[in-house]
Structures are given as C-alpha cells and as structure tokens.
C-alpha cells in the first residue's frame, strides 16, 4: 500500500529522517513509536502525501509521490483515513456534517448515506451529538469524531497520530478496540504513539509490528515490548 525506500526528509536543516525503508502491506497493523520530536508525525505526513521526501523513493498505492499532482494526492487521501493529533474540524458545521465531509467533497453525499452515517456514529459512540458544533465536544469525542470522519469513505489505510493523546485510559482502550476491529475487517492501520501501555494492550488483541524512530532511523522494536 505504502512503500518507503531509503527515504529522507528535512525541514531545511539536517535530515530529520534518513534512510527509512518500510513496507506497509495490506491488512497489517503497525505501531510507530519514538520520543517526542523524533519525526513520527513527519513520517505520517509523508505517508499521506502532505510532505514529499527530500530523497529516496516513496510510493503510495503503487504510485511514486514525486509524480503525483495535487489532484492525485487528493484522490489518494480518499483512500487514506487520517486521524490527527489535534483533530481539526469545520467549526461552523454540526458534527454529522463534519463526519460526512469526505462524502461531500468527493461528491458522494446522498440520502442513502444517512444510514451509514448513523451506524458509524453509533459505532464510535457519538449518537446524540449529531447537531453539536465541534468546539462543544470533549477531547475524547473529538478523537472519535475524527476517527469516524476518517472512516466514512471506507478507506484502505488508516493513519492515526497519537489518537489517544487527549483521552483517558478507558477511552483509549475503546478507541484501540475500534481500530483493532477495523484491522480485522481488513483495513491497514498505522498508529503513531508513545503510549507503550496502548501498544501492549494492542499486542494482546491483534498481531502488530512495532517500529521505532531513533537517531533518524526506523528500526523494528518488537522484542522488548
């Protein structure tokens, strides 16, 4: 789905990431960990085409990102659900329109989707909040809303950046169960987190690969967890 080969990235000075090689296969469940500022978010941004590698080759759905136009990136993002660390919404639209936004912008909005939307909102536990504006939601609700929005187009890949950053342990367990369930439905999942408890909890439910960014390099870190 997403392949990195010897990818490097820098924001202008020294390389933040260097020599990264990674293959994210369909149906896999990856954790990405490492200290703050190591480049987890940057790696995720590379994976959904928000950033382009300064060197090396990165392919998304078999296409080299260097050859992707802006519209191609937009199309790729319809197949990649992204949950940001600080989830951003359109604050003037009620929650259900925010969650349906990917449908709206891709021209797929239709009355038949209303059922799907309802189902999805009940699945992430946001029923009753349909007409709330995003600023009225709690951190956990925003995280779940972002997840629901990432899922509405039924994407092939889900990239989540610290999805449990703003929520308590119980809520993080609930979000993890949602992600594990999605993985069992065949979705490819990549979660960036420094929450080792979360990774341990996941390992008991699903077979995962844990990657660590250290010294600008990507290394497999499974054994010690």
């Amino acid at each position: 789905m997403i392949e990195l080969e010897n990818v490097a990235y820098s924001y202008g000075g020294d390389d933040l990431l260097a020599g990264m090689s990674l293959q994210i296969a369909p149906g896999s469940f990856h954790f990405l960990t490492g200290p703050s500022g190591a480049g987890k978010t940057t790696l995720l941004k590379l994976c959904y085409g928000a950033l382009r590698p300064t060197s090396g080759q990165l392919t998304i759905f078999g296409q080299d990102v260097q050859t992707l136009g802006r519209d191609d990136v937009a199309m790729a993002r319809r197949r990649i659900g992204v949950v940001h660390q600080d989830c951003q919404f359109l604050d003037h639209l009620p929650l259900q329109e925010n969650i349906a936004l990917p449908l709206t912008v891709s021209g797929q909005a239709s009355p038949e989707q209303a059922g799907n939307l309802h189902e999805l909102m009940s699945w992430v536990g946001l029923l009753g909040k349909e007409d709330a504006l995003p600023p009225e939601l709690s951190g956990g609700e925003r995280q779940r809303a972002a997840l629901a929005r990432a899922l509405i187009l039924s994407p092939d890949v889900i990239l989540a950046d610290e999805p449990t950053g703003n929520v308590d342990w119980e809520m993080s367990q609930r979000l993890l169960r949602l992600l594990v369930e999605l993985n069992k439905m065949g979705k490819t999942i990549l979660i960036a987190t420094h929450d080792l408890m979360l990774i341990r909890a996941a390992k008991s439910q699903v077979s995962t690969r844990v990657l660590r960014i250290a010294n600008r390099q990507l290394i497999a870190a499974g054994a010690e967890l």
Partner: peptide, 11 residues
Amino acid sequence: AVLRLVGATDA
C-alpha cells in the same frame, strides 16, 4: 487544511 486532509481537490 481540513478540506485538503479529507480529500478535497483544489478545484
């Protein structure tokens, strides 16, 4: 930024 993230084209 939100629109780009959820796959809206520039057009």
